[in-house]
Simulated scan of single mutants.
Amino acid sequence: MAPPEPDSVARELPAWLALMVDVDPSVEAARQRIGRLSRLFTRMLDMVAADQDMSLGDWEALSVVVRAGGQCTPTLLAQELALTSGTVSTRLNRLTQAGLVTVVADADGRSRPVRITADGHRRWQEATAARTRAERDLFHVLEPDQLDAFNSTLQTLLAHYETAFGEASRHDRTGRNN
């Protein structure tokens, strides 16, 4: 197998190391790559959501509703996505106007639970299937044994960080408040 093409981190690392003190080059390179991969995954997710005429935030909200059995309260959405009640209201209004959720008619007026519509569920499924295909395409550059080793390494690292800092959230909690 040919050596991998140099990535942006490999090209930039020597210049950073000349400016930084007491930095482990391997740790800095790994941290930079994890951060950049995370941002690229988010970019890909934004594109998949846009293909379904949704924002990534809307898709994440629909995911919470689906995981909750097809119906949930604004409070649950706020907790799962770490959003303010105002942001949840804005997002639910947008999802309702798009016909992706409906307000449960016979519910207590204070909690206003929402239920995913058939169209909302269809679009969520289509976006999720497209995400799965896109991720498969991204990882095809790794042989199955490389992907297994990569997952094992990531599992070790994530377990260590979760022991130190608590379990990571399912969704990013910054940058997408609407």
Rank of each mutant, 00 (worst) to 15 (best):
G166P: 01
A105K: 13
Q97L: 09
E143T: 09
A134D: 07
V65I: 15
E60D: 15
C72S: 15
L56W: 10
E28S: 00
V114E: 03
E143D: 13
G120H: 02
R115S: 15
P4E: 09
H121K: 13
A149F: 00
S55F: 06
Q155M: 04
L92F: 07
G86M: 10
G120C: 03
R39P: 00
T96Q: 12
L154A: 09
A2N: 06
R91K: 08
I34L: 15
L13G: 08
R112M: 14
A61N: 08
E60M: 10
L40F: 08
E60K: 11
P74N: 15
S169F: 01
D7L: 05
T102F: 05
M1K: 11
R176F: 05
Q79H: 11
R133V: 11
L56H: 12
L138H: 07
Y161S: 03
S26M: 04
G109M: 12
D145A: 12
A49Y: 04
V27M: 08
T75R: 14
R133P: 03
A82C: 02
R91Q: 03
V48Y: 03
G70Y: 12
A78T: 05
A15S: 11
P3N: 05
T75M: 08
L158G: 01
N93F: 04
D58W: 07
L142M: 14
T128F: 06
Q97D: 00
G57M: 11
L95A: 00
R91N: 05
R176L: 08
W124M: 02
P14E: 09
A127H: 05
V65R: 00
W16D: 04
H160M: 03
T90E: 12
V64A: 02
S63F: 04
D46H: 09
P144N: 11
Q71G: 07
P3K: 06
A78W: 04
R43C: 06
L157N: 05
L100N: 11
S152A: 13
R176G: 00
Q125G: 01
G166R: 04
Y161Q: 09
L95C: 08
V114K: 11
V66F: 10
L157H: 09
Q125T: 11
R133Q: 13
L56T: 01
L81E: 10
D51N: 14
M1F: 02
A2C: 03
C72M: 14
W124R: 08
D148N: 04
S152F: 08
P74E: 10
L157K: 02
D51I: 01
P4Y: 04
Q155A: 13
Q146L: 01
A82I: 00
R11Y: 03
F165M: 02
N177Y: 07
D137A: 15
A29S: 14
S26D: 12
R91T: 12
E28I: 00
R91M: 10
D172Y: 00
T163M: 03
L40K: 13
V66M: 15
M1I: 05
L81Q: 07
T90I: 10
D108P: 05
R43A: 12
L19I: 04
A82R: 15
N177L: 01
R122S: 07
P144L: 06
S152C: 05
R43L: 12
S26P: 00
A159Y: 02
T132D: 12
F139R: 02
L81N: 06
G69W: 09
V27F: 07
L40T: 11
H171Q: 04
